[in-house]
């Protein structure tokens, strides 16, 4: 019989792995619009983590900030400046 605790901790591990992949892609991506989208995916994984770590307050504040406001602000910035990062 699988215990609910195991399922909960398994979801934590999966969310952590997802956030790791998304962070890596966000940092190496040259197209900044794609980088922001990867960063939003990473934020979604963190929201799952906050919820499973029994912090509903943080999940509530983190959804609008990290998935709504923050990508929108960076999109405004990219629209006004430049979209591609030059290789360095």
């Amino acid at each position: 019989m699988i215990e609910p605790k195991l399922i909960s901790y398994l979801f934590m591990a999966v969310a952590g792995a997802l956030s790791l992949i998304a962070t890596y892609l966000a940092v190496i991506e040259k197209d900044l619009v794609k980088a922001v989208i990867y960063s939003a995916i990473q934020s979604t994984a963190y929201t799952i983590l906050f919820y499973l770590l029994m912090a509903p307050d943080i999940a509530l504040v983190y959804i609008p900030v990290a998935v709504g406001l923050y990508p929108a602000v960076v999109f405004f910035l990219i629209k006004k400046t430049e979209r591609f990062e030059e290789s360095g």
Partner: peptide
């Protein structure tokens, strides 16, 4: 769960 910070950033 909730409060001024959470509600304010959701309203924005």
């Amino acid at each position: 769960p909730g409060g001024g910070f959470q509600g304010g950033s959701a309203a924005a």
